[in-house]
Amino acid sequence: MVGNILRAAAAPSVPPAPAIEPAQRLISIEGIARRYRQKHTGEVTVFEDLWLGIDQGEFVCIIGHSGCGKTTVLNILAGLDRPDEGVVIVDGREVDGPSLDRAVIFQGHALLPWLTVLGNVAYAVAARNRSWSKAKVREHARRFIELVGLSGAERKRPAELSGGMKQRVGIARALAIEPKTMLMDEPFSALDALTRGTLQDEVRRICLTTDQTVMMITHDVDEAIYLADKIVLMTNGPGARIAEVVRNTLPRERDRNQMHRLPGYYAIRNHLMDFLVSRSATFGDELAAGRAWSARSVPVVEPGREDAARQPPRGRQPLEPKQLAPR
């Protein structure tokens, strides 16, 4: 039911841009850079020459260490921040400010504490649908509160909710404006493992059923593998860039608890961990050693593919590899 609502609202109000590629390219990041001046060291480049395309309906995760500018990239996409160079094209138009088509789920939930749960969601709904009556706005908001499983908590204020419930309200608020894209900045990082798992399941379910295009920042490798179709690897800042895009070859119907038994899972996970632990810092050396790489068309790798081919369909389970948590 919600899927229909979302799809109906996603009908473009402007004529769609001529399709450049067979898959509908929705977001195109074109050579953006962020620099700032420092007193002693002169100009510092946080990141530069970032190019990335996101197709309609894709779930993209960005991983990289703190300070590589992930949040800035997300804010630029949201229109809350501006790049010092380059542009972001969304739906055939250059981003020049925030838009209701791009909903943001903030890291710290960012609910307005003086409003109730219903008030927070209705605030967004009323902003999207200015001509709606109060009753219609509330009705619409209630439906999305129900969708994230918070029925009965409509009259509560954010301070009375647990961290997981607050983030659910944030998700309901983002979904309720029926955006074309959802931008999430580490939405689950402040939650306990159990709540995080449940919310990941819900976000995945909702995004699959509504064909939502999502870009999400995360630190959590397993979260990225579970949720993303494409995982963007950013090197360490300053001077961060997109090193690779990992295509997730796990089947679309995957279960969070059974995921590690899927062929290819460990290959992807090891690839991501290797990148975070060492390659994110030494990527420059790889380039210096003569690796073929272009910022404009970043290599897309499929570490899960070869592994799945190598592995017998019902063979023994792979041993848990030694892992270092990147902290």
Binding site: L100, R102, V104
Partner: peptide, 24 residues
């Protein structure tokens, strides 16, 4: 972040002042 919420909802500046800044 509260202001950013209102900005992403394309709420005009005067209304932002009344619905976010004033209560906050």
């Amino acid at each position: 972040e509260w202001l950013n919420v209102a900005r992403t909802l394309e709420i005009p500046a005067w209304k932002r002042a009344l619905t976010v800044v004033l209560p906050a």
